[in-house]
Amino acid sequence: MQKRTIYILGNFVTAFAVTLFFSCQSKTSQTNSYRIDDDAPIAEAFEVNLKYTDSGRLTAVLRTPKVKDYTNKGFGYREFPEGIVLDIIDNEGKISVVTSDYAISYVETGLIDMRGNVDIKTADSTHLMAKQLYWDQSINWVFTDQPYKSILPDGNVNEADGFDANQDFTILNSRINEGVMFIEE
């Protein structure tokens, strides 16, 4: 009987050891599937309709099909890979519309880089078209070194190789201009 008890106890210890050995296997294959790639955004949003207010007054509306948030990076930014439509509303309620095929907004500097078919239609009917445009939100300044074309409300057309202006376009410094101006005699 003692041999049988030792035999049963030995089998029990062996079964217990084997169970412990197999239960301690690595689960890294499952946990790695939950890891986020280092180049991945920390958030993505779709069909965004974002309203900006200042002292309770609506100042801008941003619409975009997709935004990727990389603000966790050393130099954080938000990317709009499918473009933007931005309505800017002035103090009188007049709306200017800015569109582009792609945009990227840098958090630290407040600089927005818009690329591809940048189109601005101001509330006073000025129309500006460019390949690329930068908007420095910290100083409310717009600029580009790329060719652009503007059509003023009076029909004057201006084409140039770059400009810088305040965001209201009341100050405009244009470089290497060509255009058509209508002058009353």
Rank of each mutant, 00 (worst) to 15 (best):
Q167G: 05
T19V: 13
L58K: 05
D168G: 10
W135D: 02
V118G: 09
A45T: 02
W141C: 05
W135Q: 01
D161C: 03
F12D: 02
V85S: 09
A17S: 12
Y134E: 07
Y106V: 11
I8L: 07
A160F: 07
D69V: 06
M129R: 08
D90C: 10
S23A: 11
N49V: 06
E79S: 13
A130V: 11
Q146V: 14
F16M: 13
E185S: 14
Y77E: 15
D154T: 15
I120H: 06
I42A: 07
I139P: 13
L152K: 11
K27G: 01
V18T: 03
T99C: 00
G93F: 00
L62P: 09
I139N: 14
Y148M: 12
V48I: 01
L172H: 03
V48K: 00
T28I: 11
T170H: 10
G10E: 03
K3N: 00
Y102I: 12
L86N: 04
I42G: 07
S138F: 14
I88M: 03
I120P: 08
N91C: 02
D136Q: 15
I6S: 08
N32G: 12
E79Q: 14
D38G: 04
N32S: 15
D37S: 07
V18Y: 03
S33W: 11
S174K: 14
R57N: 07
I112F: 12
I89H: 05
I95N: 01
N177K: 11
T170P: 01
E82S: 05
R35L: 09
T14F: 11
G83Q: 03
T71G: 06
W135H: 10
D113R: 11
D38V: 04
T59S: 02
T144K: 10
G83R: 05
G116M: 03
A45R: 02
A160Q: 08
E159Y: 01
R57L: 12
D69N: 14
D37G: 02
W141V: 03
T14C: 09
S29L: 05
Q2S: 12
Q167Y: 05
L62M: 10
P65S: 07
A123H: 04
G93C: 04
T14H: 06
T109E: 00
Y77Q: 09
G56Q: 07
I104C: 11
V13R: 12
N173P: 01
I36P: 02
D90E: 05
V67L: 10
G93S: 01
I6D: 04
D164H: 13
Y70L: 11
